[in-house]
Computed example of a mutant assay.
Amino acid sequence: MGRHLLCALDNDKMIKLTTALCLLMLLAGVHSETPQGRILGGEEAANDATPYAVSLRVDNAHVCGGSIISASKLLTAAHCLYRDGKLIDSSRISARVGSPNQYAGGHVVNIASYSIHPDYDALINNLAVITLNTALEWTDRIKAIELTGADEALPAEGAEISVAGWGTTVDGVSSFRIRKINLTFASDAVCLDAYSDHDASSSFCLAHALKEGTCNGDGGGAAVYNDKILGVVNFVVGACGSRYPDVFVRVAGYSDWLQEQLLA
């Protein structure tokens, strides 16, 4: 990656990081030596393969991924809603739904408001729920995806987990279509080796081959297992596609808060 990208974190939050971390953000005005584009590896997804996935946009430019969790609610990462350490006004945020193309197709929907997890701090509790101005209408390409419940066990080590997004590619060529890849569930020991603050109740890691995995622009997207959101893309350790596993927020650890947001 050339340089570690620590996007828009306040200094007091940065000191809590025990390793060099790369946030999965692609925000206007944030520059690095890393080319912006799509998920490392994987392949272009079919038109109707990820009907829950949305391109989260600021000033109509893609910044992060997100997921439809009800007709009026989207799930993403809290860090996606910050610019230069400050929350972005909801009037500047929109989402493209119903299209694998981040530039065209589907519908661009406006945002009424958003809710950041109350205990969000740097990479911890990195979740946000967005409320749309108007409810979505379901089609083959626009569908909600269920959240994994608090009582559901984590997958076995080595289980395949699907991740999709419009983040950076290994060759640096920007893709207009969403890409999808299967990563593998990593053990707690592997996750702790990469990320010393790992807590299995609120995070998990997915292993991958070198030069594969999530990267800039994929933050906030979903890790899907058994047709449910298992986690939200949080960050990578070191550089995109490094030997370390990628780190995700475990949504089951936030079931109560997420249900409150769905009912709000």
Rank of each mutant, 00 (worst) to 15 (best):
V163Q: 05
E146S: 15
N101H: 13
A135M: 07
A135D: 14
E137V: 11
D119M: 12
V251C: 06
N226S: 13
D188F: 00
S94P: 09
V224M: 09
G220I: 03
I124V: 13
D199N: 14
L263D: 13
C22S: 11
D10Y: 08
C22Q: 15
K143G: 01
T34Y: 14
S175G: 11
H107Y: 13
V54F: 01
G37A: 09
I93R: 04
A159L: 07
I111R: 00
H62A: 05
C205F: 03
T139R: 07
K16S: 13
A61N: 12
G29P: 04
Y225T: 04
A150S: 15
H107K: 13
R250G: 02
A104W: 07
D218K: 06
A46D: 14
A95G: 04
E33W: 10
S203N: 11
V251A: 04
I142A: 05
I161L: 06
T50D: 09
F235V: 03
S162P: 02
A207K: 09
L127C: 01
S174D: 12
V63K: 00
A186D: 14
V233A: 15
A222R: 09
T34P: 05
H31M: 10
E260M: 14
D256I: 13
G85F: 00
D171M: 05
N110S: 11
G2T: 07
L40K: 10
I93P: 01
G220R: 00
P51R: 06
A28K: 13
N226G: 07
I88V: 15
G29Q: 03
E152H: 11
K73R: 15
G98L: 06
N47K: 14
L206R: 04
Y195A: 04
H31P: 04
H79K: 06
E43D: 13
C191V: 00
K143N: 03
I142H: 03
E152R: 15
E44C: 05
A28F: 08
I145T: 01
G41H: 08
A164H: 09
G29K: 03
S162Y: 09
S115T: 09
C215D: 15
I229R: 07
Y195H: 11
Y114A: 01
R141G: 07
G219Q: 08
F176N: 12
G217M: 05
F235T: 02
N234M: 07
I145V: 11
L26Q: 15
G167V: 07
L17P: 00
G42K: 05
G219W: 01
D119V: 05
N234K: 12
H62M: 09
E33C: 13
A150N: 13
T76P: 04
A156H: 12
D227M: 06
G213R: 04
A194L: 02
V109K: 00
N126L: 03
N133V: 10
P51A: 07
C80Y: 01
K143W: 04
M25H: 10
R57D: 01
Y120S: 12
A104I: 07
I178E: 12
H208N: 12
F235Q: 02
V108R: 04
